[in-house]
């Protein structure tokens, strides 16, 4: 038989538990603490959502993109760290693949294999894939790297502690520790230029139009039209990184 005392203390317990739960939920709804509940910001449809296309058939391996990037973003020429670089793949008649990138392709390429031994050869410019579900953001312990509302993966240089976790997490090898600043560094899609309505430096200097960037939300943009009419592929699709860098005519040898 339940006593009056037990019943009243149970009522009291339930009441205080409900108050506590209500207060917690109410507190989490306050705007300033919203990030405690969920990290993702609501999508702002008025801003562009940048994507990139690189047409391997058009790349001539001049290395202007890698050179311009270093100039524009004040990355020291040496040691050889790159925000973007070019690789040359050469498939020989015996099936072996040679991958070269002398100085990141910054000084151009010389074919090291005699022409009669080559089955096929091509250049692959590489840069940050600006993944929508990027591994580098997920591993940052301090929230110093993030996906901007425009879909550009950026680094907060003042907040980065230089732990190198993101450098290891990027499956595309696109990050490095800046030799002078000692914090993580990577392609920002020239965010400072995009904000001034200028093309990123590598797109500005590409002589053959092998690179293209644009708004993936705008279904009439050149970029989306290109994606509609070509067979494009992202690097390492099996990793499900949500890469927004699409390669046209990508061959299976490319890693």
């Amino acid at each position: 038989m339940e006593s009056e005392k037990v019943r009243s203390s149970r009522r009291k317990f339930l009441k205080s538990a409900a108050t506590l739960a209500g207060a917690t939920i109410g507190y989490s709804w306050l705007k300033s603490t919203q990030f405690l509940v969920h990290g993702a910001e609501p999508e702002d449809k008025s801003l562009p959502w940048y994507g990139i296309v690189i047409d391997i058939e058009k790349c001539i391996g001049c290395g202007n993109c890698a050179k311009a990037c270093k100039n524009e973003n004040d990355v020291p020429k040496e040691p050889f760290f790159f925000r973007n670089w070019v690789e040359q793949y050469t498939v020989k008649n015996d099936g072996s693949v040679i991958i070269e990138s002398p100085n990141g392709g910054i000084d151009g390429f010389k074919q090291s294999v005699p022409d009669d031994e080559i089955f096929k050869s091509y250049f692959v410019p590489k840069m940050c894939n600006h993944c929508a579900k990027s591994p580098c953001i997920q591993v940052c312990p301090v929230g110093a790297t993030y996906d901007s509302p425009e879909g550009v993966v950026l680094i907060d240089e003042k907040y980065c502690i230089g732990c190198r976790y993101c450098v290891q997490a990027c499956p595309y090898g696109c990050r490095f520790i800046h030799p002078v600043k000692k914090v993580a560094n990577k392609c920002t899609l020239c965010y400072h230029r995009l904000k001034k309505n200028l093309a990123p430096a590598c797109f500005e200097v590409c002589p053959t139009g092998a690179r293209m960037y644009g708004n993936l939300r705008d279904k009439n943009s050149e970029l989306v039209k290109f994606l509609k009419t070509h067979t494009t592929q992202v690097l390492r699709p099996n990793l499900n990184t949500g890469s927004k860098l699409y390669y046209n005519a990508l061959s299976s040898e490319v890693k």
């Binding site: 990290g39 929230g143 110093a144 993030y146 901007s148 950026l154 907060d156 003042k158 907040y159 965010y191």
Partner: peptide, 11 residues
């Protein structure tokens, strides 16, 4: 989001 909003201006 889970980052310093002012960092967008820095970049």
């Amino acid at each position: 989001g889970h980052y310093r909003g002012a960092s967008l201006d820095d970049n």
